[in-house]
Every structure is written in C-alpha cells, then in structure tokens.
Design a protein around this nucleic acid. Structure first.
Length: 608
DNA sequence: TCCATCGGAGTGTAAAACAC
DNA sequence: TGTTTTACACTCCGATGGAC
C-alpha cells in the first residue's frame, strides 16, 4: 500500500533501479496494484506500466477499487445494474437484458468478488488470455473447463465455419496480446464456452465480453472492434437477447460504414501487408451484409439497409484458401451478377453464392414491403430464386465440399434460398396460419390471412387447393417444396449445432408451413399417407430444434412453441377423426334421439 | 535452484448502524 | 451530525510444489 511504501521499496528487489517515473501514486479510487500483480499475489510498484508487467510483456491494467463497498449484501442487483448502465450508457435495455447484465445475489458464488484467494483462481486471465483494458469493477472466478485455451479452439470448431470473418486460428493466436484484439478475444472466449460447457453459468464471460466491447465502441473504432461487435450480436441473438442484438447490429453497421469498410480503400489504406488480414476485412464487410439480410428475413424487425449501400469490396474466397493463406485475386460483385453472361472467368466461392442468395432475399423483402406486389414482379422474383438454384455449378448444388466435408457457406446459401421462397409465396399460398399464431420465437406471427375476410379465405384456400386451383396451388406447392427442402437440410449427417443459429428460424418457418398443412388435413386432401408425411416433417423439425437447444436459447423457446402447437393440432386431428368415425357408425334413429336430447337440454338452460 | 501458484494474515475503506 | 461497527476489498509475504 502507499502508506508503507518506503519500507517495501527498500526491500523490494524490483526497485533496485532508481524509479524513472514517480513511485506508486495511487490515483483516487484506483487500486494500488495492477491486475497482473494482484492475480499473481505479488508486490506491484504501482508504476504504469509496472516493472513486472514490463518484464513479462503483460498488459498492465489498473482498475477502480471497490474497497469498502458492500454491493453484494443489499440491493445487489440494483447497484450492479446501475454500474453497468454507467459503463455503457448508449444501450437501452429490456428487462430481460437488465437481468443478464446485472446478475443477481443468487449468482454470487459464480462471480464472487476477488477477495484474496479468488484472484489466484482467475484462470481466464492466465498468460495468454485476453485482458480487457478495463476488466471492470467485478472480478470473476472461472472454471478451468472454460479456460481461454479451451474456448478459442471450440470457437473455431463450432462457430467460425458459420460466420468465418475473424482471422484463421493460426494467424490470430500469435496476436493475442494486441490491445485492439482484446474485445474480439473476449467475445470469442464466451462464444466458445457456450459449446463446451453449455450447462455452466457463462454469465461471467458474457459480462466480460460485453464490457470489453462497450469500451471498445467508445475508444477504439477499428476493424477488429467491428468483428467483435459482429460476433457478439450473432451470439446474443441466438442466446435469446434479440433486442440487444438488433441494437448492436445497428451500431455495428454504423461503425463499419463510418470506417469505410464497404470500400476496398479501407483495405488498401490499412496497409496490412497480409493477404489473410485483407481477406478478413473483406469477410467482415460481407458477413455484416449477410447478417443484415438474415436479421431482416428471420426477425422481420429490421430492414436490410446495407442492401442499398454502395460497395466495391471484393468477394471472399473459399474457406480452404482462407485457412491455408492462399488467397486468390478476389472476384467482384459485378462479376457475380454477370457470372453466366460475361466472358471473364471467375471461380466464385461458396461465400459468394451465400451473398447472392441473401441479395435475392433483399429483393424479395423490398417488394414484400410494398402493399401489393404485382403478379409480374412476383413472377420475376421467383425466376431469380429458381435461376439461383439452376445456375449453381455442380460442386455447389449440395452442402458438401469435394472431399465430403460440410460446406456451411453453401448450406446457408441453400437455407436462405428456401426461406426466401417461403416468404415470397406464403401469402399467396393462402395457408391457414391460424394454428401457428402462437409461434413467435423468431418473428412476429404472420397475419392468418392476407385479406380481411380471413376465416373465409383460409377455408377457401383449402378448398381451392383441394380443387387444384391453378394459382393458389402453385404458390402452395412452392411453399411446401421449400419447407420440405429445409427438412432435407435437417437430415444432413452433421450435428445441427455446427450450423448458424439462423437455421433455427428456417426450421421454425418450415414448422409453421408443416403445421398449417397438417391442421388443414395433411397434403390438403386428407390422405393418410400425406398426413403421416407431414406429421413426420413436424417431428423432424421438433427434433432439430431440440438438438440446437443444447446451445441456443432461441431454439429452446422455439421448441416449446412448436411442440405446443403440434400437440394442439394432434389433439384436434384425433378428435376430428373420432367424430368422422362416429358419423359413419351412427344410425338415423340415433341421430334423431340425440337432437331431441339436445333440444331438451337447451330448453333447460334457457329456463335457468 | 528457480519460478509460478496461491493460502491467508494484515490492513484499508465506505456503507450501515448507532448515539446524541 | 458525528462516531462506531461491520463487511468486504485489497496487498503481498511466504509456504509449497513442479520444472529444469
């Protein structure tokens, strides 16, 4: 402490040299020892940076002292929430979000303040762990199961293939001590922990990631901050904080545009002299672009605003080329648009087809927003979607690479194409969406029908489909096919948790279509085989959501809703069948006596 | 022998409780 | 309003054990 400085300095071998900076001057409200020294239970000389940190090339970070505070004994939720509110004033929080930020008294054991023994157990901040510039006023005790060394490989194995914007592992690890990378590493740490220890409380890591990103937003606007924000917003959305994710998406887009990441000039001016880092910047822009479209399509709570933003950033390369640092000259978006008409040869990556697929989604959504979509425009949009599928090179027609490994980029591209097809045709297929009104895990429920005469219309739709009304049945077929194709994506022999969490929304959309079909009588005609087929599709969707719920909170919510509706539809269908059987068995005499009994009952009720 | 880890004693501090 | 009590934060000595 500052009071016994003279004694400790005289005996401390660290102070053998005369100090170049003034000896320990504890800033008001700041701890006397840096985090590194506190963690190691060693005497800190209080200089900034301190001698130990200089020698060990560690980040020398001083955080505000909480000495004397009693935040955990009374009104702890409030005080911590208030603290957090100050740390990131730009964020409007929902009640749920406030909960996830504040934690509560019951979680005390998992993030116990760093009283003396605890600091030594801060495994997260070990030698190679990221250290946010302000680790925040709270310290956390982390289980070794979620150590940095385990969580980062987990991130690359589970999450990175779905959103491959950050540097490949072998390029990132040598840079873990760079200040600019700390928020990104903190976010990756949290995301990686979600897969390896889903049963554990990941709140501490999430809090650290949030604090780190919040701070970076105000202090360090750079490409790595955009990457950290992008990864965080995806994971927040999947975890079940959609409002937070949407707000963060808006700020991330703002920062990316402010930095000029939509122009290749951003890369040339970065002067990275690293092909793989240049590629990482290209990917950051296009990932944000794709996510903007996915958010708009999946949640229908945002607009795909990046769709109209001018850009000349080259398209990302194949994943294998990125991993092996063999980055080819990037193809342009114009090349992609002209791909079948131009003489110029360009091998487009799976990521590029994913970009193209999300562009189609953007075009459909643009027209979707118009009150009435002209039939011609509607047909043109369908041509776009079909053309995308038909003109895929043979190697991109399924979601596997040449060597049989899954190609997540093409998986998502197909997923987007089928989802867009449902969005395009759903309203014209005149599905009876009433049974699925309770399913709002991804997006607010669609109107039960497109016209005010909804009930009549739904009934008419079923009748028209049964009579094979040419237009309605065509749209219904498109919707049913797309839902079945999404079903096929679920049957790939790849763990579903390795896919992007947006697949949950595709599964939910397919579930809604299947449930509508089921409640309307299977394939429309009430045939037993059709009925069993649709029922199996619903079961498949439930199974997929169950598997993904082991990681993503969003899937847990969707699972509950889809199962609830499926149970209700099953019940109604069973009752209806029993009634049909009853009507077949009953005689005319039985019927007349029942009517008489009913009339008497009604008369009794009337007199009461 | 060196070095990293960490238990725990000693101390500091601000909130809460209490006295006047 | 001033004083005392209390609970917790914080520092860092020194024991311990693993690596070389």
């Amino acid at each position: 402490m500052s009071t016994d400085l003279s004694i400790s300095r005289a005996t401390d071998p660290c102070d053998a040299n005369p100090p170049l900076l003034p000896p320990r001057v504890a800033e008001p409200g700041t701890s006397g020892a840096c985090l590194e020294c506190r963690q190691r239970h060693l005497k800190c000389d209080g200089r900034r940076p301190c001698k130990r940190c200089v020698d060990s090339e560690s980040n020398c970070v001083f955080v505000p002292s909480r000495r004397g505070q009693r935040t955990h004994t009374r009104g702890c939720s409030q005080s911590i929430a208030a603290q957090e509110a100050v740390s990131s004033p730009g964020i409007k929080r929902t009640q749920q979000d406030a909960g996830f930020l504040a934690g509560d008294c019951r979680r005390k054991s998992s993030f116990r303040s760093a009283t003396s023994p605890a600091l030594g157990s801060l495994v997260a901040w070990s030698k190679f762990a990221p250290r946010p510039a302000s680790a925040g006023p709270r310290q956390y005790r982390l289980h070794p199961a979620v150590s940095f060394e385990r969580c980062i490989p987990s991130y690359y194995h589970h999450f990175h293939p779905s959103h491959p914007l950050v540097l490949p592992q072998q390029h990132l690890l040598p840079r873990v001590k760079e200040e600019a990378l700390q928020p990104l590493l903190a976010v990756m740490h949290w995301v990686g922990s979600k897969y390896i220890a889903p049963e554990m409380d990941q709140q501490p890591l999430l809090d650290i990631a949030r604090l780190s990103v919040d701070e970076a937003q105000t202090k360090r606007a750079n490409g790595f901050t955009v990457q950290a924000m992008t990864v965080l917003l995806v994971a927040l959305d999947g975890t079940g904080y959609p409002q937070q994710a949407v707000e963060l998406l808006a700020r991330t887009k703002q920062m990316a545009l402010w930095l000029g990441m939509n122009y290749s000039q951003f890369i040339t001016e970065s002067k990275t002299r690293s092909g793989v880092l240049d590629e990482s910047w290209r990917r950051t822009w296009w990932e944000l672009y794709v996510l903007d479209g996915m958010f708009a399509g999946a949640h229908r709570a945002t607009s795909f605003s990046l769709f109209d933003v001018p850009t000349d950033v080259g398209l990302p390369c194949e994943e294998d080329d990125y991993e092996t640092d063999q980055i080819p000259e990037p193809c342009s978006l114009q090349d992609l648009s002209d791909r079948d008409l131009s003489i110029k040869r360009c091998d487009f990556s799976s990521f590029s087809y994913r970009v193209l697929s999300v562009q189609n989604l953007g075009k459909v959504m643009q027209n979707h927003e118009a009150a009435e979509v002209d039939a011609t425009v509607h047909a043109q949009l369908e041509v776009l979607l079909s053309s995308w599928r038909h003109n895929l090179p043979a190697s991109k027609r399924d979601s596997l690479r040449r060597d049989g490994r899954p190609d997540e980029m093409m998986f998502q591209a197909h997923m987007l194409n089928h989802t867009t097809s449902i969005l395009l045709h759903q309203s014209r297929a005149q599905l009876d969406l009433a049974p699925a009104q309770a399913i709002d895990a991804c997006a607010p429920p669609a109107a039960a029908s497109t016209t005010p005469e909804s009930d009549e219309c739904a009934a008419a739709a079923a009748a028209a489909a049964a009579a094979d009304h040419p237009r309605v049945s065509l749209h219904a077929r498109h919707v049913a096919t797309a839902a079945n194709e999404i079903g096929k994506l679920m049957t790939h022999r790849t763990p579903l948790t390795l896919h992007t969490h947006f697949f949950i929304c595709a599964v939910v959309l397919a579930s809604i279509v299947q449930l509508s079909a089921w409640s309307g009588g299977g394939g429309g005609g009430g045939d037993d085989d059709d009925d069993a087929g649709v029922r199996e599709q619903v079961r498949l969707c439930i199974g997929a959501l169950r598997q993904m719920s082991s990681v993503w909170g969003l899937a847990t919510k969707a699972l509950g809703q889809v199962r609830g509706v499926a149970g209700h539809v099953h019940f109604v269908r069973t009752q209806s069948r029993q009634m049909e059987q009853f009507l077949v068995d009953v005689t005319e005499e039985d019927m007349m006596s029942m009517f008489a009994a009913d009339t008497l009952t009604l008369a009794d009720i009337g007199t009461v």
